[in-house]
Amino acid sequence: MSSGGGDALTALTALEPLAARVCPWATDRPAPELDEDPDGPVRAMPVILRLEKQDPPTPTALLEAAAAAALALCLDERSARGGEWFDEVAAWCGAGRIRKLARRARTSHWRAVQEVPGVTVSDLVRALVPGPVDDVPHEVRRLQIGGTDLPDDEPGPVPAGEPVIWLNPRVEQSTGKAGAQVGHASMILATVLAWTGGDPHRVTAPAVRTASTSDWDVWCAALEDPEAAWTRYGVAPVRDAGFTEVAPGTVTCIGQVAAGG
């Protein structure tokens, strides 16, 4: 275990509970209880996608902004210990699952949601401070969850050396679903980096691409030993809880940095 990065992340953000779940081999902290209190609140991070009727973004631009926004909120100084968002973010990260709920907005609704506490990236995605799913502001509650699909684009190769989030090439996901998943991936990748002695801020602007089936199969086979997969390929997975669109346990995407972090 490398404690330097983990200590830095603990001091900076409320992400600490994730380490014991996503890289238990890198920390001696006990894993939190995964079975949430059935009588307690279900918490989620609202992720607002800007989808204007005229000149909508490409899916790649939207997903890269979603990945960046989710992590930016967690690394924001307001999410640090003593910050105004710390309690909400820590409670969410300490829950059984880091749920995200993507909604779409445009025009006046997009402008209105800028007043709700959160972080906006590229004027395309706003990640909001997580909280109970049944207690969201009016500006968020009125936004639709469906209708987030965008036509495919061809973003080209990943720039050399950049962290990347690879989408599962064998599973169909709506743009909204994928937006939530890449947000999970950026958080997980930053956490594993931190607890293995790396810099979590390396992941603040990840590329998003669909993996080739050959690479995907190699990485998924390697994930049988997560520590070895990280050391050899620099990969960390997102496994879906199965509430929407995909079966429980599906690896929806994989975050990757240079092998070994």
Score class of each variant (00 low, 15 high):
residue 2 S to C: 08
residue 7 D to P: 00
residue 14 A to C: 05
residue 18 L to I: 08
residue 25 W to N: 01
residue 26 A to C: 11
residue 28 D to S: 13
residue 29 R to D: 13
residue 34 L to C: 09
residue 35 D to L: 15
residue 35 D to H: 13
residue 45 M to K: 11
residue 53 K to H: 13
residue 54 Q to E: 15
residue 54 Q to G: 02
residue 58 T to R: 13
residue 59 P to H: 03
residue 61 A to D: 14
residue 62 L to C: 10
residue 64 E to H: 04
residue 65 A to L: 09
residue 65 A to D: 00
residue 70 A to S: 15
residue 74 C to H: 13
residue 80 A to K: 08
residue 81 R to T: 12
residue 86 F to M: 02
residue 96 G to R: 04
residue 98 I to D: 10
residue 99 R to P: 00
residue 102 A to K: 04
residue 109 H to N: 07
residue 116 V to G: 07
residue 116 V to I: 15
residue 118 G to E: 03
residue 120 T to F: 01
residue 122 S to N: 15
residue 127 A to S: 14
residue 128 L to M: 10
residue 134 D to G: 14
residue 136 V to H: 09
residue 139 E to Y: 01
residue 142 R to D: 09
residue 147 G to P: 05
residue 154 E to W: 04
residue 157 P to C: 08
residue 162 E to K: 12
residue 163 P to Q: 09
residue 173 Q to W: 09
residue 177 K to Q: 04
residue 184 H to Q: 01
residue 184 H to G: 04
residue 186 S to F: 00
residue 190 A to V: 05
residue 191 T to Q: 05
residue 195 W to H: 15
residue 199 D to A: 12
residue 201 H to K: 11
residue 202 R to Q: 14
residue 210 T to C: 11
residue 213 T to C: 08
residue 219 W to T: 03
residue 219 W to L: 03
residue 222 A to L: 07
residue 228 A to D: 13
residue 231 T to R: 14
residue 232 R to E: 13
residue 232 R to N: 11
residue 240 D to H: 03
residue 241 A to V: 10
residue 242 G to L: 09
residue 244 T to F: 04
residue 247 A to R: 15
residue 254 I to K: 00
residue 257 V to I: 08
residue 259 A to T: 02
